[in-house]
């Protein structure tokens, strides 16, 4: 069961706002989903290793430097252009310190 306070806490962590009605709705819905998920507790998993990569790949690393493919066709400019607010070559964000 997910309480109203828990929903408020989760929404805050996820940076979303909920109306009173939505808090009610989502706490009921998430509670019923979590009830269903509770069936996982029937499975004994003490000696089982968790899976995080299904093909068995591990630690794919590379040099921390742009490759020629990374800088193709002025991609940086295109990314900056897509931002809602920008200045020169930067994303523009509201001031957080007075």
């Amino acid at each position: 069961m997910i309480s109203r306070e828990q929903i408020e806490h989760i929404a805050k962590l996820a940076r979303m706002e909920l109306t009173e009605k939505e808090k009610e709705k989502f706490s009921t819905e998430l509670s019923s989903i979590l009830d269903y998920i509770d069936k996982l507790n029937q499975v004994e998993t003490k000696a089982i290793e968790p899976i995080s990569q299904i093909t068995g790949l591990e630690n794919i690393v590379r040099e921390d430097a742009p490759r020629k493919e990374d800088t193709r066709s002025n991609i940086r400019d295109k990314f900056i252009k897509a931002a809602p607010a920008k200045k020169d070559n930067y994303f523009k964000v509201p001031k957080i310190l007075e």
Binding site: E17, A85, F91, V93, P94
Partner: peptide
């Protein structure tokens, strides 16, 4: 901030909250 819909609030936290 980086792309997509932005509420363009003047406060950073409000901007996150409202955009999402």
């Amino acid at each position: 901030i980086k792309y997509g819909f932005s509420a363009k609030d003047r406060n950073l936290l409000d901007n996150y909250l409202e955009s999402r």
